[in-house]
């Protein structure tokens, strides 16, 4: 399974990663090799095998509907790259 440059760029875009020209080929080779490695799975017959999402096959526990958190905005926004009157700032989002 080898990927062409456009596929690599498409995946990068999907992952919101920017790959510079010079490293594209390296990513291309590495990703292709990794896919070759995992493609061994295709040979396995798994008909009727229930996919396993968790080792324990346990079930979801429920939380009581109570408010346990209080306002810590100042504390949390101290570590934010850019804020203004309580909002996180980003370049204009067009809709």
């Amino acid at each position: 399974m080898s990927l062409d440059t456009n596929q690599v760029l498409a995946i990068a875009d999907l992952s919101r990663l920017q790959i510079d020209e010079k490293s594209i080929t390296e990513f291309q080779t590495n990703l292709s090799n990794i896919l070759d490695l995992v493609d061994q799975l295709q040979a396995v017959d798994t008909t009727g095998v229930e996919p396993m999402a968790h080792p324990m096959d346990a079930v979801q526990r429920l939380r009581a509907d109570v408010v346990t958190e209080d306002n810590k905005r100042e504390k949390f926004q101290k570590i934010a790259p850019s804020t203004a009157d309580g909002h996180y700032l980003v370049p204009k989002v067009v809709e």
Binding site: V44, V49, P51
Partner: peptide
């Protein structure tokens, strides 16, 4: 999905 089935095996 395949990997999760193999995981069970």
């Amino acid at each position: 999905k395949k990997a999760q089935q193999v995981r069970r095996l």
